[in-house]
């Protein structure tokens, strides 16, 4: 009996410890079979992202929305993404997969770095079950004029399906092939989609075009379209 109590107490402590390591995220529950982990950029989460999460949940896609700079009290800088505890993200991915739903991650800008590094730490079988959508990922360690770009070591991504969503109106667009090569060299299965007439962070622009405003309100549809077209269901 004492042994059973001790075992239960140990399990409770372990469960609490695991939970304590999870980042503070906002959940939008839904009864469907899909779960989207939405990781906002280093600039923080914008209202249109929350609106899109609500719309997705209404369509049966559960969303866990994570604002890393807010969750870890970090400045809104790309370098802040280096400070995110990777193990917390690994635990978060595992917790999502433990839900039994088909899990896809949507990470914006430099948030792609910790997400990919966390995915690299999953077991191969867990990684194969994961889909990762990256919106204009910034994986540079060096990007200086007249010099070859250098990219972050994101770890082994074998079996991971990665789809890059790249707004056409971006200085990074001409460099997309190099980025895809880098991800493929790490073992990821990569594809890409160009988002025409859009700029990076189009849903949070100070002076958006009419088209950008309209697309901001259709982010849920865009993500569903990409997930379905990709076969990540």
């Amino acid at each position: 009996m004492h042994f059973f109590k001790l075992l239960m107490f140990t399990l409770w402590v372990c469960a609490f410890g695991a939970q304590a390591g999870l980042p503070d995220y906002q959940a939008f529950p839904a009864k469907g079979e899909r779960l989207l982990l939405w990781v906002a950029s280093e600039r923080g989460r914008a209202d249109p992202e929350l609106q899109a999460a609500r719309k997705l949940a209404a369509q049966g896609v559960e969303v866990w929305s994570l604002d890393l700079v807010n969750a870890y009290f970090l400045p809104q800088l790309p370098s802040s993404m280096d400070e995110v505890p990777r193990q917390d993200l690994v635990d978060w991915l595992r917790a999502a997969q433990a839900s039994g739903k088909q899990v896809a991650v949507f990470a914006v800008a430099r948030a792609a770095a910790p997400v990919l590094q966390a995915a690299a730490q999953l077991d191969p079988a867990q990684r194969r079950r994961l889909c990762v959508l990256l919106m204009y990922p910034n994986l540079y360690t060096q990007a200086e004029a007249l010099a070859e770009p250098d990219y972050l070591d994101v770890g082994a991504l074998s079996g991971l399906r990665v789809r890059v969503l790249q707004p056409r109106r971006s200085a990074a667009t001409p460099w997309l092939p190099g980025l895809l090569d880098h991800l493929a060299l790490h073992g990821a299965s990569v594809s890409r989609v160009i988002l025409e007439n859009l700029r990076e962070g189009y849903w949070a622009r100070e002076t958006p075009t009419e088209f950008e405003v309209a697309e901001s309100q259709r982010m849920d549809a865009m993500l569903l379209r990409e997930l379905n077209a990709w076969g990540c269901t």
Partner: peptide, 11 residues
């Protein structure tokens, strides 16, 4: 570097 690149990329 990351800060400068990101700010410039975001225009």
């Amino acid at each position: 570097l990351l800060t400068v690149v990101a700010i410039s990329l975001f225009c």
